[in-house]
Design a protein around this nucleic acid. Structure first.
Length: 947
RNA sequence: GGGCGGUUAGCUCAGCUGGUUAGAGCGCCUGCCUUACAAGCAGGAGGUCGCAGGUUCGAGUCCUGCACUGCCCA
């Protein structure tokens, strides 16, 4: 110390430098702890971003929160493992590469599966690391040595193992079911991947002629009014008329008397000229429309169920790309929407279309490409989810896993209760291939860990099922597969269950729920290393199979207008752009300061701008410190003025070591520091990031810079003409350094870069530990909290601010020093003023301080408080009427307060029920307010304001 | 249709278990280039806490209803 810091704070260069340093030095790599390790452990799995991903604000919020918590734990001496990796992201990646091929005029299908997958791997090698590189810019303190990719061989091996085990346990089955089918991607997708949207559509009414029947009551049924009497019809309503080509029944409700006479009869399916039965099923609700519905088992999930109940044939009329197939007769080859048009035209022409109404319907769209989902009958693989969900539910209900904020717990439990079987097969090429083979000869299906040579049953040649697994299948396994599963490893014993999961609400079901289900199932019976478990504070937990002990769900980042950021709206804020302009530290601070649990964040750049100013403030305070050290301790330049503390092994070290409480401001700032340390630690404990950030901000700027630095300036200035003392300057300097060091450590998890830069400069690049990230986090020392100092300082501040107020009101020239007259209500206050005379003179621009009678001190221009009256001696005409109206307004407020307080204190209910502390506080307040009233009244009298 | 949240200063938001006179940042107004910082300093204006009831000695905070608004699920 001291290295000269550049005059202006420039985050860009600093941040890049330290980000590289942290990685190069492997500061956050965690080797497997040996047997006998007794330190506490903190483990966190990074929700793996898609390899195709680009960093967005959601990531940045997520990673900022994780990094804060991770750095905080590390600094408190935990063995802290933050595990990074990326997800192969089946659909997204395949799409990306397909698009690339398209631009080269190539097609996936022409290329063939093997070549295509090779191509995807090439793509991954070239571009797959982009998002992780962006993460590095954020300063994420992850263990890069343990970086994984979900398609790595070891993880793929684990995926196959899991699939086979589930199959053997009877928890995986295969079958023909209606699934959500994306005609663009030509694959099944899960319920969760479908986004529902309300659109204005039409409800068409189509009449189906009843076979061999005449209308018995033509005038009693409005649906039949005006129709030819010789032919009876049943009218149904549909929003998807093209599916009628695959109708295999008409359903009516058994209780619906309008149709009783038709039970057992048949109708002629228009356009197709196929006879289909009229069935009774609860699918038809008498209240809705005509009470009759068409049944298309191959194209609607509800109809599918009804079809199974009545053993109806399933007629698929569309192909995988959403075009009508050969069973659609004349419509074969038409796209589904073209077919709809044509079907309607033909129906109208032939007199079957009898109505058309506007209708608001919810349609499902593929969340990735926006194509309208087609329910499609196809052969898929499913996980029988109930048995897995049971344990997963239990784990949360019993409190083995806690979810913060708590309202997500209910949402989770509800979802777990109503959960459906999970369709895990995808008709994609990129992903984990399902370890199943079918025999070409006898059709036998073999699920195995490795490819069978021939069919076990008939010896025929086998071929692997083409489908791959849902991406969430493999990511759901990560908490244990990244720790070596299915082997039993030391890593598992130490790091499993992971401590915490921080993620967005959006993937609560996609990912969080599945990790819990898989964890509870496959890690059943697992036990964490006992000593470590105890040291980490989880001794009372019974279930070590859970993937994590806690889940923290964070908010969504919206734009400044509270709109969800989306590419189509064009309101996406690019975090890297924000970082470029304001710095990573300022951006991190913004996200932390706005992240109150449970509420979304409207990202507002003006806040970030403000926090860059905060960083600049810190920067300049540091320059001030260095400047003084250089002046006061020139002989120590080059050796470093070492603050008293070292690495995180001294984590139990509390307060500020080596701090000397010489003057009031020393006692005060030490007390405040400990208080803020206490608050920040408590806030982080409960993920109240905004509170932690704001607390540090207020302390550093509002107390440390605004008051403490100003107050110690005279002491530092030992050579000044008013006779400074070098020993005192040295002591003040040492205090400043030790305090600054503590403040930097306190702030480091939120603003890692600027704190590292200044901290390293303080040690001239030779600190006891390689980084502030490995130094100890400040813990509060209750002994150093000094109530008396805080009270005294408050009086002093009050006095100084009062004088400043008066000066402003009197429009005293800024350079002019004025004498003040003070009356102190207690001797303590007067001696306090005397002892701090210099500070008052300097900070309030006062010439001298004189003790006078209360009467005199309260004469205008004056300020009165319960502790003192202060008057500024300044010759200036006072605007009497303005002053009077101000006093009157003040008096009104005082009277009102007295009234309210008196009323409350006279209330027996209040006196008997309110806590003593509140009653005492209120009494004191009343006393003070009454005093103020007297003073104000006498002042008014003095000025001749009248009542 | 079911569920969950929001409504506090001009703007963006805090206000945790009900407790003394509801806070911050930005913006606005006034004055300062006071040798750490004009990305700064000092001072100031600005709020019937969405509406209506209720519980309580006491409600921004708890309950009920309403209005507006957002999200999730079907």
């Amino acid at each position: 110390m001291p290295q000269e810091l550049p005059k202006a704070y420039e985050p860009g260069a600093i941040e890049r430098r330290w980000a590289e340093y942290w990685i190069k030095e492997k500061l956050f790599s965690v080797p497997t702890p040996p047997e006998g390790e007794t330190r506490p452990v903190f483990t966190l799995l990074l929700p793996p971003p898609n390899v195709t991903g680009r960093l967005h604000m959601g990531h940045m919020l997520n990673q900022t929160q994780m990094d804060i918590i991770v750095r905080w734990h590390r600094m408190r001496g935990f063995i802290t493992l933050w595990l990074p990796g990326t997800d192969h992201a089946g659909i997204a990646t395949q799409m990306m590469v397909e698009k690339q091929l398209e631009s080269e005029g190539k097609k996936r299908r022409e290329m063939g599966r093997e070549k295509f997958v090779e191509r995807v791997w090439e793509w991954k090698k070239l571009y797959g690391g982009a998002i992780l590189d962006q993460m590095k810019r954020l300063g994420a303190s992850v263990d890069w040595d343990r970086e994984y990719f979900t398609m790595d061989e070891n993880l793929s091996h684990a995926v196959r193992e899991v699939f086979v085990r589930l199959y053997e346990e009877g928890l995986i089955y295969r079958g023909n079911y209606i699934v959500n089918w994306c005609p663009w991607h030509e694959t099944a997708i899960s319920d969760l991947e479908v986004k529902h949207e309300e659109v204005q559509g039409k409800l068409w009414e189509i009449r189906y002629p009843v076979v061999g029947s005449e209308n018995p009551h033509p005038r009693q049924n409005p649906a039949w009014m005006g129709l030819p009497q010789e032919q009876e019809y049943i009218t149904v309503a549909t929003t998807r008329p093209e599916t009628m080509l695959g109708d295999t029944a008409i359903a009516v409700n058994a209780k619906d008397e309008r149709y009783t006479h038709l039970h057992g009869k048949k109708v002629m399916l228009p356009l197709m000229n196929r006879e289909i039965p009229i069935i009774c099923d609860e699918l038809a609700q008498p209240e809705f429309g005509t009470g009759a519905v068409k049944v298309t088992p191959a194209h609607d999930p509800n109809d599918f169920e009804a079809g199974k109940r009545h053993d109806l044939p399933q007629i698929t009329v569309m192909d995988a790309r959403g075009r009508m197939n050969e069973t659609a007769g004349a419509y074969a080859g038409l796209d589904r929407f073209a077919a709809r048009k044509k079907v309607l035209e033909d129906l109208r022409e032939q007199g079957f279309l009898v109505g058309e109404k506007d209708y608001t319907l919810a349609i499902g769209k593929c969340e990735r490409c926006g194509t309208v989902i087609e329910p499609r009958l196809s052969e898929q693989w499913f996980i029988k989810i109930k048995p897995l969900a049971e344990r997963a539910k239990e784990a949360v209900e019993s409190g083995e896993i806690t979810i913060v904020p708590e309202n997500y717990r209910t949402i989770y439990l509800q979802w777990m209760t109503n959960i459906h079987d999970w369709c895990v097969s995808r008709q994609l090429w990129w992903g984990h291939r399902i370890p199943a083979w079918t025999c070409g000869k006898c059709g036998e299906v073999i699920v195995a860990r490795s490819a069978p040579e021939a069919c076990a049953k008939c010896g025929g040649a086998v071929e692997q099922v083409p489908d791959v697994l849902d991406t969430w299948f493999s990511s759901g396994l990560l908490p244990f597969t990244t720790l070596g599963w299915p082997e039993k490893t030391r890593d598992q014993a130490v790091f499993y269950p992971t401590t915490l999961l921080i993620t967005a609400y959006e993937i609560l079901f996609f990912w969080v729920a599945r990790m819990i289900m898989f964890g509870c199932h496959f890690m059943h019976g697992h036990e964490q290393d006992r000593a470590i478990k105890k040291a980490s504070g989880w001794a009372e937990k019974k279930n070590d199979s859970v993937p994590f002990r806690r889940v923290y769900i964070h908010a969504l980042v919206r734009d400044a207008e509270r709109q969800k950021m989306s590419k189509t709206k064009g309101n996406v804020v690019d975090p890297l752009d924000v970082i470029e302009r304001f710095g990573t530290d300022a951006t991190r601070f913004t996200l932390a300061a706005m992240a109150a649990p449970g509420t979304d964040i409207a990202f507002n750049e003006s806040r970030t701008d403000g926090y860059r100013a905060f960083a600049n403030k810190i920067w300049n305070a540091a320059r001030f410190m260095f400047m003084n050290v250089e002046r006061v301790e020139p002989d120590r330049v080059g050796t470093g003025l070492r603050p008293v503390q070292t690495g995180s092994e001294t984590r139990l070290h509390m307060g500020i070591a080596g701090f000397q409480t010489i003057a009031l401001e020393d006692r005060w700032i030490l007390s405040r520091f400990n208080r803020v340390a206490k608050d920040v630690n408590e806030a982080l404990e409960t993920y109240r990031f905004h509170e932690a950030a704001n607390r540090i901000y207020d302390f550093f700027w509002g107390e440390f810079c605004d008051w403490y630095l100003e107050l110690i300036k005279p002491r530092l200035n030992f050579s000044s003409e008013d006779g400074g003392d070098k020993t005192a300057a040295r002591a003040a300097c040492a205090n400043l350094v030790n305090l600054f060091d503590g403040a930097l450590r306190l702030l480091h998890p939120v603003m890692p870069f600027i704190t590292e830069e200044i901290w390293q400069a303080m040690y001239e690049g030779k600190p006891a530990v390689k980084s502030i990230a490995l130094a100890a986090y400040p813990q509060a020392d209750e002994q150093q909290i000094d109530l008396a100092a805080e009270t005294e300082m408050a009086i002093l501040q009050d006095l100084i601010v009062s004088v400043r107020n008066l000066r402003a009101e009197l429009k005293v020239e800024p350079k002019v020093k004025v004498p003040i007259e003070v009356f102190a209500h207690e001797p303590m206050v007067w001696s306090l003023i005397q002892q701090n005379e210099g500070a008052i003179k300097r900070l309030a621009n006062v010439e001298n301080i004189k003790e006078v009678s209360q009467h005199q001190a309260a004469q205008s221009p004056a300020r009165s408080t319960a502790r003192f009256d202060v008057r500024v001696v300044y010759e200036r005409k006072i605007d009497v009427s303005a002053e009077c109206s101000k006093l009157r307004k003040e008096l009104e407020g005082i009277e009102r307060r007295i009234e309210v307080t008196t009323g409350q204190l006279g209330n027996p209910g209040f006196l008997s029920k309110a806590p003593q502390k509140v009653v005492d506080g209120l009494s004191k307040q009343l006393e003070d307010t009454k005093l103020l009233r007297e003073k104000t009244l006498s002042k008014m009298k003095e000025m001749g304001c009248g009542a």
